[in-house]
Design a binder for these strands. Structure first.
Lengths: 164, 164
DNA sequence: CTAAGTGCAAAAAGTTTGCACTTGG
DNA sequence: CCAAGTGCAAACTTTTTGCACTTAG
């Protein structure tokens, strides 16, 4: 048993989990288990925060891997399906992802005005989500949950009658 | 309250509401209220389902408006901020939106394998969302909530041998 | 009048694809 | 061995921008 898992480290545990999820997804789709995809999955598991595709490509290379941008793009859907990555901050429409293994899940609250992003997590959402998925016969892999609003600062700053 | 609202019509009510929300957002940002933006807001309020930017451009023209693609792109963030549109089915990464006025809200359940999209709505989510937003001092405008999973058909089709 | 708004077309970003070369099973 | 996987670069699609013209306030 991995101690790193218990203490919540994002070291070997997350990577091992990512690889195992990848294998599972590959089996599901009857795909070969290739060196490239594994490199990408490992690199993805090691990233934190929000990142775009190019950053993932660079991460693979930084680990000595050799993934091309094309291969990463071709692999992304599988990583999402495998539950290794999930799309993040979609309202930026920029192809951003975040790692779904080795860290507790959180959602986003985004200011439509200044684009500040606040992370939050709320157990109740997760429970309801599982319920909805089950009700429709889906096996839940992940989710994208983003609340769009106007933050306190922007409301005050932009209302003519508000103070400054 | 408006009868049109009660019977869920997407007639004049939604358009009027869209224009009023637009005015409010323009005031907030100290922008002029232009003919173009209003045309776009009206057209947006009239669309239903998921649509991409180009469809909105065409919708404006179909109503006799004259918005260019550039203007629509420049206006989109304001429409989202105004609560007239919200991003939809982000995992497709394609710039899809849907109207946020004049219809009851729903979220999406997407199959990561076959990309089938099931709509669902669950009052409990809305309540919790408002609570989270308030807790962080945000005025909630809208949200993007997408559950990613594997639908029943895809699980059966790809798992000749169930295991876990 | 003058700064914001707009259209057009060109440019930039982001993503997909054809093809020839590898590689896993 | 041979179909799946990969890299590269070209093709595509989507979004942003510069500039000259128009319009709201």
């Amino acid at each position: 048993m991995r101690l790193s898992r218990i203490i919540g480290a994002r070291s070997g545990g997350a990577t091992a989990q990512a690889v195992s999820r990848l294998r599972e997804a590959e089996r599901r789709r009857s795909l070969r288990s290739s060196r490239g995809r594994e490199e990408i999955a490992r690199a993805a598991a090691g990233l934190r925060g929000h990142f775009e595709v190019d950053a993932l490509v660079r991460a693979v290379r930084a680990r000595g891997g050799r993934a091309s941008r094309a291969t990463v793009y071709r692999t992304l859907p599988l990583l999402v399906e495998a539950g290794i990555l999930e799309p993040a901050v979609a309202s930026r429409r920029k192809g951003q992802y975040e790692t779904a293994v080795g860290r507790s899940h959180h959602d986003h609250l985004v200011c439509a005005h200044c684009h500040e992003v606040v992370e939050f997590s709320f157990e109740a959402f997760e429970i309801l989500q599982r319920e909805v998925a089950a009700r429709h016969g889906f096996e839940l892999i992940g989710h994208l949950h983003e609340l769009v609003g106007i933050c306190r600062d922007c409301r005050q700053e932009t209302l003519p009658h508000g103070d400054d």
